[in-house]
Amino acid sequence: MNDDTSTSVTIRRETGPTMLLGSGNYFDYANPEAEDLTIEDYAYGLAFTGRFSGQCVNKRTGQRVFYSVAQHCEILSKLVPAELAYAALMHESGEVVCGDLTSPLKSMLPSYKTIEKACAAAIERRFRVPAEDVAAIKPYDIRLWASEREQLLNWDGRPWGASDNALPFDVLIEPKDPYTAAKDFLNRFSELAPFEAAAP
């Protein structure tokens, strides 16, 4: 059996390597203009993507839990200064179509990082998210990561490196199911998005 032939059957390549979205539209990784990506594709894509590759444990209960990237974004949008809230909500744009690889694995895959950045940039343009605002939320994102590690990872408290000194936010994280996370993300989008961002 020809491996190339069997692979081509599972990948739509009329215009490039494309992904079929929940809306029925396609996203082209080779030419990621993202104009056909809807906000529902965005919200549900992140709501069904588990943060930390699904390895979350509620430290208060000891139970495994699902915690989505969509909820992470919604929470962050409420922790940053108001002028950065929209960028915080939309700062994981690349993960909508590229998934959420853990940082250690991502560091070993430079070509993946290049593709993810190109996809994120295209999606951020589609939804009118200023690139400088996405860059500005990084310190807040790191603080939320520290909060998530404390509450949702089976972490023993030892630092992960010499620069591991992020101050967690005083926030209680209550993981939501994917449908609730998507609904809350969409509601937050309707509160924050510039009018032109919602247009197809």
Rank of each mutant, 00 (worst) to 15 (best):
T5P: 00
T7P: 04
R13I: 10
G16V: 06
M19H: 15
G22H: 12
S23V: 00
G24L: 03
Y26D: 08
Y26F: 11
N31G: 10
P32W: 07
E33F: 10
L37V: 15
L37T: 15
T38I: 05
E40T: 07
A43Q: 02
G45N: 08
L46F: 10
F48Q: 10
R51E: 14
F52V: 07
F52Q: 12
S53G: 12
G54I: 08
N58Y: 10
R60L: 02
T61K: 00
R64P: 03
V65E: 00
V65G: 01
Y67T: 09
S68G: 04
S68C: 06
A70P: 08
E74S: 13
I75V: 13
L76Y: 11
K78W: 06
V80H: 05
A82N: 01
L84V: 04
A88Y: 00
H91R: 13
E92A: 14
E92V: 01
G94S: 11
V97E: 02
C98S: 05
G99N: 02
G99F: 02
D100N: 12
D100T: 07
T102Q: 13
T102P: 03
S103W: 04
P104A: 06
S107H: 10
S111N: 10
S111D: 11
K113T: 15
A118M: 08
A122H: 03
E124H: 15
R126E: 09
A131H: 09
A136D: 06
I137P: 04
D141E: 15
D141I: 11
D141W: 13
W145A: 15
W145F: 14
S147Q: 05
S147P: 04
Q151W: 04
L153A: 03
D156I: 01
R158S: 02
W160I: 01
A162D: 14
S163N: 13
S163A: 13
D164G: 05
N165Q: 06
V171P: 01
V171K: 05
L172G: 00
P175N: 03
T180A: 11
A193T: 09
A198P: 05
A198T: 15
A199L: 15
P200F: 14
